[in-house]
Design a binder for these strands. Sequence first.
DNA 1: CAACTGTTGAAAGCTATTTCTAATAAGCAA
DNA 2: TTGCTTATTAGAAATAGCTTTCAACAGTTG
Lengths: 157, 157
Amino acid sequence: MESNNLEASLADQHDILRSRLNREGLRLTGPRKKILDLFVMTPDGEHLSAEDIHYQVTTKGGKISYSTIYRALHMMVDLGIMREVELAEERKYYELKTSLAKQHHHLVCVQCGEVHEFEDHRVTKASRQETLEHGFLLRDCQFTVYGICQTCQLSAL
Amino acid sequence: MESNNLEASLADQHDILRSRLNREGLRLTGPRKKILDLFVMTPDGEHLSAEDIHYQVTTKGGKISYSTIYRALHMMVDLGIMREVELAEERKYYELKTSLAKQHHHLVCVQCGEVHEFEDHRVTKASRQETLEHGFLLRDCQFTVYGICQTCQLSAL
DNA sequence: CAACTGTTGAAAGCTATTTCTAATAAGCAA
DNA sequence: TTGCTTATTAGAAATAGCTTTCAACAGTTG
């Protein structure tokens, strides 16, 4: 029953993405389904890098190339389905865009990489105000706070 | 007279950086002076990438290697003299940290790359509050708003 | 000014991402 | 269903930004 619900919801997501893609002359393929599934099943507050995706697919016995992963990610970012976030220096992370209204931001530990998500109305307001004042059309904004978490502070002693 | 003042202020900057470096067993060298000078002479709201620095030095007839540029930039970031900012996808940009109190943020046009700097007390507050709530030690925060500037909006018609 | 040790440039290396291409497979129409 | 059209795939090679290595060099200090 559990798994039926899950499967149903994944199938729904597939249909949504398929029609979105087809409208643009694009196609929903096996690899794209797998990638979408991973994001749908990823808990809030976690993000996936291209490497994460490759690892998750291959350890499940699947097979996927990095070029496919990157192409799918870019495509979904272009369609406005995903967001690229800069959490660590070395690589890019991706997350599904849920609601445009619910912007969230990140608090990152620069030592261990732990990430907290948070919402802050003031930040959202500031981005609206700033784009308005300069006549910009708001596309996205990223607010990332870098610090050292308690655990790392203690272990540094 | 103009140039005397400029030279004087550059020499002052050199002395400040020299003593700061020597305190840590580091040295103020020719290439480091050149790099610092570029940042001092760069107007507010502009940022330099490693490539920019290389270009500026070499077109003035100078010579500098990328390894030296990157080493100098990292050193100054570690010393807290500079800040690394993520303005574009492909490369990192650097700016001098002026006053720690005066945090500023960036509004970037995703089409033409135009950058505006702005301050916003609410954002600063939000970063303090968030780190406090999670027991983090605040290191830095970056708030970057992405949009499309008026010029690009008009030229898209 | 000599010794000590940090710094430099050039080249090699690294790694995330992108490009290229022949083979494959969605989506569409009959 | 079947076949056609064309987007998409895997895999390899290429790219790009950045880092490391190391022998020669040059600030600093006494």
